[in-house]
Simulated scan of single mutants.
Amino acid sequence: MAEYVAPKHEAPPPAITGRRLSYLTFAVIVIAYLVIIKVSGMLIGGWADEDDTLTTRGVVFTMLIPLGLSVIFTYGVIAALGWWRPVMKDDRPVNRWVWVVPAILLGAILLGINYSALSEKGWLFIVCLLIATQFVGWGEEGMFRGIGVTVLRQHGLREGQVALWSSVIFGVVHLSNAFTGGGSGAIAQAAIVSVAGYFFYLTRRVSGSNALNSVMHGLFDFSLLTGAVILLDQQAYVGTFAPLLAYPILAIILLVKRRSIEPADRAGDSTIASLA
């Protein structure tokens, strides 16, 4: 496939330095990442006799420690590949209106957090949950929007293909939840996660780095957990629907403006535009 060619007025993005990664090797890395989370989660949770996230101790042993190990693995791989710059910095900008994507996600996060019920859990629970969900954000964004996007670009895919396949891979990986209690609902989750992956991909590109999407991914999960999972023992919270509504709202906006996501000289390279 053809390499990315920058418009005449635009300096080409720096070549990806470091080691070259095959698709098969990337798949092995992703599987190892999943094994670390799933197996260490079961072993550590079992050792501590914890199987839920309703208490501070439960969050520490079922989320914080296993997810922390996955983050160490992810950024260890990035360091070993010599990919700090291509993973952490994105040199392919989109039009500035795309800032609406992280803006809507932020609004959904702020509305979705169940502040009242969460305050009853105490500050230590809140801090542990925040750190754990940031581990989710930095781990998954480092693996899929960082390493994954870099692998696809290194193999010469057009940017629309990079957006599509990095999001699909992100969703498919979540099918693993079917084997750990997710059941048939894991299929629907995988589809939704794929869409979310595209939103985080656009956040990466509009911000020019892999940091903002990592932070927002963690906060988005924090919001979902406080409203719908962690606090099941509390009264139903209407704000829980805010993060869920963000998906169709963003989908409609991106479909309407699909042809103006990319700068003018690359307008045909948008994932949505190329599929429309």
Rank of each mutant, 00 (worst) to 15 (best):
M42I: 13
T55F: 00
P66F: 12
S70A: 15
I36F: 03
T55S: 15
G58H: 06
F61R: 09
V35I: 15
G41V: 08
W47A: 14
I36V: 13
R57L: 04
G58T: 00
I44F: 09
V59I: 15
I36M: 08
Y33A: 11
L69W: 07
L64E: 06
T55V: 05
V28G: 07
A48P: 09
T55Q: 04
V59D: 06
L43Q: 12
L43W: 10
T56P: 04
L69N: 10
V60M: 05
S40A: 15
K38N: 12
V35Y: 04
L54W: 06
G58M: 04
M63Y: 13
T62S: 08
I31T: 04
I29T: 09
P66C: 05
I37Y: 07
I37E: 02
V60N: 00
V39K: 07
R57H: 10
V30R: 02
K38I: 15
W47N: 06
L64R: 02
V39Q: 09
T62V: 14
A48N: 07
M42H: 11
I36C: 01
V59W: 03
L69Y: 05
I29F: 03
G45M: 07
L69S: 02
L67N: 11
G58Q: 07
L64Y: 05
G41W: 01
V39D: 04
V60P: 01
